Amino acid sequence: MWPLDPSRKEVLRFAVSCRVLTLMLQVLTRFLSSSTPIVYWFPAYLLQDREPLLRSLETEPWKPLVEDSPPGQKIPRNSIMELLYNWKICSPVTQYVLGYFLTYWLLGLLLHCNFLPWT
């Protein structure tokens, strides 16, 4: 093994510390997101409390799966897709919450596919 001069030691120390920091942030983010429902409860509370469109969706009956489906086979309407389709008439709080989750999803998709650290 070759002797490391001070500049190589500093570069190696910096590289290792950056990798450890990145690894810890990714692992912590994954643990918090998967084991802490509060991260999802708060936006759900905001949407349930401040979005009148969700209250109107709760009172409507379920839609059939497809036109030729057997009678009685029904699925619930997807509330999030309804909110996305009606983006312009949603409240600002709903737009912020949906915008946050869509941005997080898009950034994660773009950065992860380019081998950049993202959780």
Rank of each mutant, 00 (worst) to 15 (best):
W105A: 04
S17V: 07
S91D: 08
M24K: 08
P61C: 02
V27K: 09
L102R: 00
P52S: 11
V39H: 09
F31T: 13
C18P: 04
N114R: 15
T103H: 04
W118C: 11
C90Q: 13
G99Q: 03
L54R: 04
F31M: 12
P43K: 06
Y96W: 13
L12T: 12
F101K: 03
M81I: 06
Y40M: 13
A44Y: 06
K63A: 09
F101T: 13
L47S: 07
Y40S: 07
F31K: 09
S34R: 03
Q73T: 06
L54K: 14
Y40W: 12
A15S: 10
S79T: 11
V39I: 15
P70I: 08
L102H: 03
P92R: 10
Y96T: 08
D68C: 03
E58G: 02
D68G: 11
P76R: 08
R55F: 12
F42C: 12
W41Y: 12
S17E: 14
W2E: 12
L46C: 12
F115K: 12
L12P: 03
P52F: 06
A15H: 14
V39Q: 09
F14P: 04
L47I: 01
E10D: 13
F14H: 14
C18F: 09
D5G: 15
G99K: 00
P43L: 05
L102V: 05
Q73K: 10
L84R: 07
L47P: 01
V66C: 02
C90D: 14
D5C: 14
N78W: 04
P92V: 06
P70G: 13
F115N: 14
Q73H: 08
E67N: 10
D5Q: 11
W87G: 03
H112F: 04
L83P: 06
G72S: 06
I38R: 13
D5R: 12
P76W: 00
S79I: 02
T103V: 02
L98H: 00
L32R: 01
S56F: 04
M81Q: 10
P61W: 01
T29S: 15
R8S: 12
S17Y: 00
N78C: 00
T119S: 06
T36M: 11
N114L: 15
L110D: 05
F101G: 00
S56W: 05
P64M: 01
P6M: 08
Q26C: 15
D5I: 13
Q73F: 10
S34C: 02
V20A: 13
W87K: 01
L65K: 09
R30M: 15
Y40D: 06
Y104M: 14
T94M: 00
L25F: 10
P37A: 10
P64C: 02
G72W: 02
E58Y: 08
E58N: 05
V97L: 03
I75W: 06
L83N: 05
W87F: 10
T22S: 15
L47M: 04
D68F: 06
D68S: 06
Y85P: 01
Q73I: 05
R55G: 10
N86L: 05
